[in-house]
Amino acid sequence: MPDTHRIPIDAATGVDATPDVVAVHHEADSDAWLVFCHGLRSDKSGSYERRCRRAVEAGYNAVRFDCRGCGESDGEFAASTLAARLTDLRHVVDYFDPESYALFGSSFGGKAAFHAAADDDRVDAVATRAPVTTNGAFDDYRSAVDRDGTWTFDTGERIDRWFFDALDRYPFDHVVDALDVPVAIFHGGDDAVVDPTDSFDAARRLETDVLLERFAGEGHRFSRAAEERLLDRLFEWLEWAYGPA
């Protein structure tokens, strides 16, 4: 059975003091690790649980976790900026302390995975699905925050200037300059949330080995069949990029 851990974040950023984040470890009998980063308004449940089960079948220790303000973790959603999510991710990885690991991130979690991989020598490969690679993906929200001071989603989550102050500190240029591990990008061809052309532009700019696959007819959320195809391709690629589990 997977083990659930509460991990204190003692170097919190944003408006929270010292939140705990909740992480789930799906154990495998190997030294290979795969850590998952969820999207902006997502959490570690659902597709991440399935992905972790598949990772264990492939021989990887898998970790999924809720960033602060999301799922079962402490804190307010407004405090869950990119800087805070990178802090949370670093604490989660340090808690389990693998010698090396691979990252998988979806959407805003893809942006977190890219920036974490650029700054952590322990990362040997990074895979993403519909990653955010341009800050312009949030221009509509930025305009609302500039005008009203805050933006509230239909489900009640709120972002404010903290979100954009942190976002602007992490341009993709830094990833291009620093990232030197293999990258995989999977993107739905009909994604209306994150423009697929952003992934093609990112792949052209990255100075490392890049696998880029466009899933025709898929939107920002993949169908169950496309998700299974993605996982097949992911673990085939990881065996080459990260090494066999």
Rank of each mutant, 00 (worst) to 15 (best):
M1A: 14
T4Q: 15
H5M: 04
I7T: 11
I7K: 11
A11F: 11
T13S: 14
T13W: 10
D16G: 07
A17H: 15
P19Y: 05
V24M: 08
S30C: 01
L34A: 11
H38D: 12
S42I: 10
K44I: 12
Y48R: 11
R50F: 09
R54A: 13
V56T: 13
V56F: 09
V56H: 06
V63M: 07
R64P: 01
D66Q: 04
D66L: 08
A79T: 11
A79L: 03
T81C: 10
A83Q: 15
R85Q: 15
L86M: 11
T87K: 10
D88I: 02
R90C: 04
V92D: 00
D97T: 13
E99S: 06
S100L: 00
Y101F: 15
L103T: 03
G109D: 06
K111A: 12
A112V: 15
A113G: 05
H115T: 07
A116E: 09
A118N: 10
D119P: 00
D121H: 10
A130C: 12
V132Q: 09
N135S: 06
G136V: 00
F138G: 04
D139M: 05
Y141L: 14
R142K: 14
R142E: 15
W151S: 07
W151G: 00
T155D: 15
E157D: 06
D165A: 14
L167F: 05
Y170Q: 04
P171G: 06
H174S: 14
V176E: 11
V181G: 07
P182N: 12
F186H: 12
G188W: 13
G189C: 05
D190A: 15
D190G: 01
D191Y: 10
V194N: 06
D195M: 01
D198H: 13
D198T: 02
S199K: 01
A202G: 05
E207A: 14
V210T: 05
V210M: 02
L212E: 12
E213G: 04
G219D: 03
R233E: 11
L234I: 04
L234R: 05
E236N: 10
A241Q: 09
Y242F: 12
G243D: 12
G243Q: 11
